[in-house]
Amino acid sequence: MYILEVKNLKVYFSQKGKVLKAVDGISFFIREGESLGLAGESGSGKTVTALSLTRLVSHPYLLSGEVLFRGKNIFRLKSADLRKIRGAEIAYIFQNPLSSLNPVFTVGNQMIEIIRLHHRKTKREAEVYALKMLEKVGIPDAYKNLRSYPHQLSGGMNQRVMIAMALSCHPSLLIADEPTTNLDATTQVQILQLIERIKKEERLSLLFITHDLEILRRFTNRVAIMYAGQIVEIGENLFEKPFHPYTYALLSARSGIIPEQGLKGEAPSPFAFPAGCRFHPRCPFKRSICEEKEPILQEKKKGHFVACHFPQTMVK
């Protein structure tokens, strides 16, 4: 059973009269209780994808396709119904916890706000509940920290607060958008372990966005690779047997194998993608068809899809 199904999602923006295709026709699903990883370079459309799942993108020029959450089309919901899903059913953790928390309200104030929004609770009950949540995510001295402002806490602590807020309304899907990117290495591990623990405890489904492939390898069941607003490869065990040259390049760039075949050149401008396969200007295996015809996602192996005219079978 799918908890979330995305069909042909397109998100375009208009900038200075030009159309920016941030996400250009992607489809994927997340099974109940599964963790899907979403990886790609910055600017490939990962964050916009995450935000558009609950229509959080501001002023899109075009927002089309279908996002089905437990069968309900998010894009067709009235905004009042959508608000009942945001936070309560689908919760987010963002990168930069400090800037994602309101600087002029205390942690407690912000938590109580969202708890009381989705539950019938008095202020006092909500505060007790907030304390419980803070303890759950491993914040020491929760009573004192409830009265702190975000700038008084460390980055790791703030991210724990974000997680506590996200969990406080028992969502079933958690979207984590680069939750550890700006944290130091030790904190990163702690936060990742925390996310893994609460995922089990709360039986959450997870969409985990990052450009750190190592994290995805360890924490997710399936991985989707995005390039230039599209998914170029998606499947289980992607890292053991990548088919797409881009995935392969990403992996080798990281592990240092064959660096000369690593990522050359720059990501294409989202205002004007190259014709044919969008990766062809940087692809070491390109042939003439790659410049003309856009490849579509095709099942290469069971549950493993790839969009490439010449999928490589390369064992790392």
Binding site: R86, G87, A88, Y92, L101, L117
Partner: peptide, 8 residues
């Protein structure tokens, strides 16, 4: 954005 994401 966080506030919107929380359904406020």
């Amino acid at each position: 954005r966080t506030a919107y994401a929380q359904g406020i």
